[in-house]
Write a protein that binds this DNA or RNA. Structure first.
Lengths: 325, 325
DNA sequence: ACCGATCTTGACAACGTTGTCTTCGAGGAT
DNA sequence: ATCCTCGAAGACAACGTTGTCAAGATCGGT
């Protein structure tokens, strides 16, 4: 910037004014400065700028579990869109469900003086963020609640969705329902499981360890589990898979066997219309989840100091898949 | 940091040394400083740090077309992983295939003094990056070549893959092949189309406008186009869809009609095993694409000054999908 | 011709850190 | 005892920018 000033024969400050489109600079000076900027290939140093002018780095931090997962990719895409509308940049990092890593990444983002944080929590204790929040970095949690910190949160109605879906299975007469899930350690999974038993227990099908299978991380494991359940003497007449990765494996095994078990899955998925098996999915609007959270964050950034609020977005039952041909 | 120094009764510089784990500080001073840091909730300002200590912000910029697209999400995930191994952060932005936006975003990333750029190009002219590159910000392009700038590039063998796939169709006797693509404006699409005609033309099936359909942006459009082609007097006996979004629509329509046309698709997809239609896909390793590009970038950041190189990754033919039941 | 208001420009300090240099003192070799 | 080296700590400037303030120029109104 000093070089530009010399080249244009003006002061440092005048260059700063021109570069930032501040008013009250003579047109001919503006022109000279812009010419010098072009000749010297000057680029404003955004770091120095935000260091001087307060703490705003025009950056939002987004912490998710895993970027490559379509659910989080959709969140990232929507967040990026809203962030862009505010002329800011987005830093994205994955916690990979590791609380220690989550903590480190969030600290690092704060060290970079992000203007706000969007977090899908991996851990159960986010009190370490309290200092940052008090110092003025707003945080919005999405998809899962935070632990030990009062903050804005946007959730899906996991329990209600599971209730509605399982109710439909029960109304169709199903009582032995195999339930497959990723990990009870994850809040959303617990909520979905609880929702299922909100309906199953009163219908005379109390919690049954043999029908609930935890720790299923990929479609292959889901397929094996379905095979195992169907080979038992008293096989389930229906399955409830608690995320879409599991649903894929379940469908695979049911198709392979030509089974006619009913299938309910949490999470919609893109290629559902190609699936050769009739299923009901509990769908929700991932874009909306991210949009609401990001807009909430920007309201905070713009100075909204009201009490933290929690928004719960509805889910919807949708019939998907074609009957096998 | 001044406050911490006062609190600990040491100088500013000593705090800096402790915070950065520099050697030659007395253990008792280290302890006092760390205590003060904890009491005051001190957080090192990463912006100020990188402003002073050179230009490194420990940040990599990734520019892709669309975050929510699984292909780019996979790239982002892999890049994030490698970047994390280097203790850096990743800024991600979407150009949405808009060259002007691409340019603006890249400039903005440079203004934030990223240590390097990973770019899936949207435009055809990247000469505006030359200054940055010369000033020491390395750039690696992936999936598509850059325009007007000599830089490292990692590509897929689009043309070779298309050739291999179409060769298989031709060997099976197909000559009337409907080809569906997104946009000839995109480099990868042109390469795939050229690859197809590398094989088709010598086999006596020269370029036929009626069989090549451009501008197909979503599965529904693909389905309509397939319907249209099949309703012609001389319908194609096979289809080649140039990306996976199109493949989905093609399968949908072929299933609906109970057609037995052969199908070749560029891009593998996740749920391919559930698809009730036999198809061959031209697959490739997206992780590898991103990994190679990111590692190339870090070699440049670490000072590799050799001539820019272009890496072309192979594709593979894979049989997918089940025959309709 | 004079005054105040407004516009234009620049000098200077400051943002929070770290690189460089200096100072001071202790320890070892002669 | 003297010299040299090395370790520990701090003073100070600098990174590239912008906020603040002051100075000078211009202008309209009296």
């Amino acid at each position: 910037m000093v070089d530009v000033a010399n080249r244009a024969g003006v002061s440092l400050k005048t260059v700063s004014r021109v570069v930032n489109n501040e008013p009250n600079v003579q047109p001919d000076l503006i022109e000279r400065v812009l010419a010098a900027v072009a000749e010297l290939g000057f680029r404003r140093n955004h770091l120095a700028s935000s260091l001087r002018s307060g703490q705003a780095s025009a950056t939002i931090g987004l912490l998710i579990e895993e970027i490559a997962n379509p659910f989080y990719a959709t969140i990232a895409g929507t967040a990026a869109e809203v962030v862009r509308q505010h002329d800011m940049m987005l830093i994205i990092a994955s916690s990979e469900e590791d609380p220690a890593r989550e903590r480190q990444l969030l600290r690092d983002m704060c060290a970079r003086r992000v203007d706000g944080l969007l977090v899908v929590p991996a851990g159960y204790d986010h009190s370490f963020l309290r200092t940052e929040v008090e110092l003025g970095t707003p945080v919005v949690f999405l998809d899962r609640p935070a632990g030990g910190l009062a903050a804005d949160t946007v959730l899906l109605d996991n329990r209600g969705g599971a209730r509605a879906g399982v109710r439909r299975l029960v109304e169709a007469g199903h009582r032995r329902i195999g339930i497959l899930l990723d990990s009870v350690g994850i809040h959303t999974m617990r909520e979905r499981l609880d929702g299922a038993y909100d309906v199953l227990a009163p219908a005379g099908a109390p919690y049954d360890t043999r029908l609930v299978r935890d720790g299923i991380r990929d479609p292959a494991a889901a397929a094996r589990t379905v095979a195992d359940l169907l080979d038992r003497p008293d096989p389930p007449t229906a399955f409830f898979s608690l995320n879409n990765r599991i649903t894929v494996g379940v469908i695979e095994e049911l198709c392979r066997r030509g089974s006619d078990a009913a299938l309910l899955g949490f999470d919609d998925f893109d290629l559902a219309r190609l699936v050769p098996y009739p299923l009901t999915v509990i769908a929700y609007d991932t874009h909306e989840l991210a949009r609401v959270a990001t807009e909430l964050l920007f309201r905070r950034i713009e100075g909204d100091r009201s009490l933290p609020r929690t928004v719960v977005l509805p889910t919807e039952l949708v019939a998907r898949g074609a009957p096998p041909r």
